Amino acid sequence: MGVEDLVRWERATPPAEIEMNVGIRDVDNAVLSPFAVRAEGRRRKLRGAVYTAAGTLVEESLRLSGPGGLVVEDNPRSLPPEDLGRDMVHLRGTWLYGGHWMPEFGHFITETVTRLWPDPRPVAGVVYHRFVGTEAIKPWQTTLITRAGWGAAQTLVNTGWARVDHLVVPSRTVFLSSMVHPTAVRQWERMSPNAHTAGEPVFLSRSRLTSDPRRTRTDPLLDREFAARGFRVFHPQEHPVDEQIRVASQAPVLAGAVGSALHLSAFASPDCRTIELGDIRTRDRPHRPQRAIDAACGRLTAHVPYYEQDGARDISSTSHALDAIMKSS
């Protein structure tokens, strides 16, 4: 079996078919339990959720990961009276619950902004639970929140006990590594500039990310291979996030290694195709979160395995695979 039989365009399918009921729950005198995380083997168990005034868990607030997830929710289904009687921060008025404030770019695109799918409305603010990592608010996150329609509202990343007069809790629209609901796709479309004029194919390069543990010493050669095939070699970290989204939205083909940058395909045209280059994590199989995004958007995709030679990406085999893909267009 040759490369041509292994590497070709295929219609993306979701890693798992999961029933997702999307809606909004209004909770009066809601209680936010604090962020906490503990290790259990390779897994980390996460706490931090919304509860009713009587202490009952609001299931819509949970972060649910797909099969094999390494960070899983571990919230009790009810709170004891002593927790409900604690001194808490009081958030007055109506707030929107924004889920978890993800510190990583790809997770912010897939998990945080997709929780903000309700039509923007006047609220006192949007409150999030902290996630593993820092709760610091970075400029690129503020930009994405603004594009999602909630830039005018106060942003609060909560870490302790809090009580909210009235909390609007939208359900999740992404089941990580498994499935993306059409509501999430509409949210990404709302955030896209809708300037889907045909631009040039784009390769999202890692060659200048010298601290990236998944970068290999042959990545600069990979830039040349894509440039020779008419791709614009784009280094996302060197551009504002607005420009990253604009470039992705106009690309007829978006290529890149497995990871956060390729999640920019969420903002691409419906006709855009994606080429995913495997890395040391996904040597011969598509990355589940990326596959979920592309399936929800109805994309044709191609996965190039991680061909390795002397501890780095084998450029010759990768080049052969790219030729097979481009010939099959």
Results as ranks from 00 to 15, higher is better:
E111P: 02
V253K: 09
G311I: 07
W9P: 01
R281D: 00
R215I: 06
S61R: 10
V126D: 07
D28G: 13
V37D: 02
Q141F: 10
T210Y: 12
V22F: 12
Y128R: 11
E225L: 14
V168R: 15
D223Q: 06
A198W: 11
L254K: 01
L70D: 10
H239T: 04
P193K: 00
G151D: 13
A124E: 14
S265G: 13
L222C: 13
R281C: 00
W140H: 05
S33K: 01
S192A: 09
D279C: 05
P182W: 02
L32N: 07
G41M: 06
T301E: 12
H107S: 08
M20P: 03
A162R: 09
A296S: 14
P81T: 12
W117D: 03
W117G: 01
V258K: 00
S78Q: 03
W9H: 04
G106C: 11
V253E: 08
P270N: 04
S265P: 06
A227L: 10
A152C: 02
H320S: 10
V89Q: 11
L62Y: 03
R217T: 14
R63H: 10
N75H: 15
G230C: 09
R92T: 11
R38G: 07
A184M: 03
G98H: 04
Q237N: 09
E82P: 01
R224G: 02
H181A: 02
I325A: 01
R86G: 01
D242W: 02
I325M: 04
F105Y: 14
G311P: 13
E276S: 03
R283V: 09
L91N: 04
I315V: 14
R217Y: 09
I275N: 03
R38E: 14
H107C: 00
D284V: 00
R246A: 14
T318F: 05
H196A: 03
A195L: 10
A136F: 10
A195Q: 10
K138T: 15
V168K: 10
S319I: 01
H107N: 13
T218S: 15
W9M: 04
T216F: 05
R229W: 03
D119N: 05
G125Y: 11
Y128W: 15
L277F: 15
K327Y: 05
A321M: 06
A266W: 12
M191Q: 01
G66M: 05
I280Y: 01
V50S: 08
V71R: 10
L79H: 09
G99Y: 08
A321D: 03
R121H: 08
F231L: 11
R208H: 13
H181D: 15
F267K: 04
R186K: 08
T146V: 01
N29T: 06
S207T: 13
D323E: 13
G23R: 15
R246E: 15
V174Y: 08
T282H: 05
K45C: 13
P15F: 01
E276A: 08
E243W: 06
A136C: 06
P34F: 00
V180F: 00
E4L: 01
I137R: 07
R115E: 04
H235W: 05
R273T: 03
V126M: 09
S319F: 07
M20V: 14
F226V: 03
T301H: 07
D279S: 06
R77I: 14
V202C: 03
G99A: 04
S269K: 02
V247E: 14
